[in-house]
Amino acid sequence: MQQSEVLERLQGVFDEIFLEKVVVTPELTANDVSEWDSLLHVSLILAVEQEFGIRFRVGEVEGTKNVGELADLIAKRTEKK
């Protein structure tokens, strides 16, 4: 899966989770969104796992710096299947 395709599907997930509109870009970080606190993060990652039918390994998401890297991780995981 291309990063652009993952980002497109991530936009759908973000629209479900955040009350305010958040535009998904590779450079986006949690810091850019006031709603994106620790609690919402748990919910967001869970929704991402469900959307893509994957399960991140322990510590994996912690290593990503922004949404672009998260998308790359998702792409890697979905290819492995």
Binding site: S38, L46, Q50, R55, K65
Partner: peptide, 16 residues
């Protein structure tokens, strides 16, 4: 700030 948070994610119930 990165995607690192104290409160972390959990297992989806749709997994195998």
């Amino acid at each position: 700030m990165t995607l690192t948070y104290e409160g972390r994610f959990d297992r989806p119930n749709s997994m195998g």
